[in-house]
Computed example of a mutant assay.
Amino acid sequence: MSIPITLEFSGGAELLFDRQKRHDIDLPKQENPWRIQELLPWIRDNILKERPELFMQGNTVRPGILVLVNDTDWELMGELEYNLQPNDRIIFISTLHGG
């Protein structure tokens, strides 16, 4: 069974995703639970449209991108180790602004 989740991008992060702020996706079934650690490369490979270096650094999001899991800071949820649940809402907010 696939896992339906919602991804949202704002604060300028949506510009990397063809200006689309919301993505309702179904993650394919896999043997182990989906974690944010696996979600980030999936996002990069499947829906990111340009400049992956502005979204990811190494195996995590770049500094300056706030990540919320169901409106809670991901730091309180285990960050990369958080196991995704059906209907989770993951929000990426860029706090970096050019000047």
Score class of each variant (00 low, 15 high):
37 Q>W: 11
66 L>W: 05
97 H>K: 03
66 L>T: 04
93 I>P: 02
22 R>P: 00
49 K>P: 01
75 E>Q: 12
32 N>L: 15
40 L>P: 01
41 P>D: 09
13 A>E: 14
87 N>D: 15
11 G>Y: 02
66 L>D: 01
17 F>W: 03
49 K>W: 07
63 P>W: 07
19 R>A: 10
54 L>D: 13
71 D>P: 02
52 P>T: 11
29 K>F: 13
16 L>S: 05
75 E>A: 15
72 T>G: 00
56 M>S: 07
39 L>H: 01
32 N>Y: 15
79 E>P: 00
9 F>Q: 04
41 P>N: 05
61 V>T: 15
61 V>K: 00
60 T>F: 06
74 W>L: 02
48 L>P: 06
58 G>T: 06
19 R>I: 12
20 Q>F: 05
24 D>H: 06
12 G>C: 07
58 G>K: 05
48 L>W: 02
30 Q>C: 08
67 V>H: 03
8 E>Y: 05
85 Q>V: 10
40 L>R: 02
18 D>M: 13
83 N>F: 02
47 I>E: 07
80 L>Y: 04
64 G>L: 11
29 K>S: 14
26 D>Y: 12
45 D>K: 08
50 E>S: 15
89 R>N: 11
40 L>E: 01
27 L>A: 04
74 W>G: 00
41 P>Q: 04
69 V>S: 10
4 P>V: 13
28 P>T: 13
43 I>A: 03
15 L>E: 10
11 G>R: 00
60 T>C: 01
63 P>D: 10
21 K>P: 01
60 T>D: 08
34 W>T: 09
70 N>Y: 11
15 L>V: 14
79 E>A: 05
27 L>W: 03
32 N>E: 15
45 D>E: 15
25 I>H: 03
97 H>P: 00
67 V>Q: 01
77 M>P: 00
78 G>N: 02
91 I>N: 13
82 Y>C: 04
82 Y>M: 06
49 K>D: 13
61 V>Y: 02
24 D>V: 14
35 R>C: 09
65 I>K: 00
22 R>S: 09
30 Q>E: 15
63 P>R: 08
91 I>P: 00
12 G>N: 03
81 E>T: 07
78 G>V: 14
1 M>F: 02
47 I>F: 03
7 L>N: 10
71 D>Y: 09
86 P>Q: 07
32 N>Q: 14
55 F>C: 00
3 I>N: 12
33 P>Q: 04
54 L>F: 13
17 F>S: 04
93 I>S: 11
63 P>T: 15
51 R>W: 10
82 Y>T: 05
10 S>D: 14
15 L>F: 10
22 R>I: 13
66 L>S: 03
87 N>K: 07
90 I>M: 05
96 L>N: 10
49 K>N: 13
34 W>P: 04
93 I>T: 13
38 E>G: 00
50 E>R: 08
33 P>K: 06
28 P>L: 13
70 N>R: 04
85 Q>I: 11
73 D>G: 08
43 I>P: 01
18 D>Y: 15
89 R>K: 12
43 I>Y: 01
79 E>S: 04
85 Q>M: 13
92 F>H: 06
52 P>V: 14
13 A>D: 15
44 R>K: 09
13 A>F: 05
82 Y>K: 02
51 R>A: 14
98 G>F: 05
73 D>S: 12
94 S>Y: 05
20 Q>P: 00
21 K>M: 10
5 I>F: 11
19 R>E: 14
26 D>I: 11
7 L>H: 09
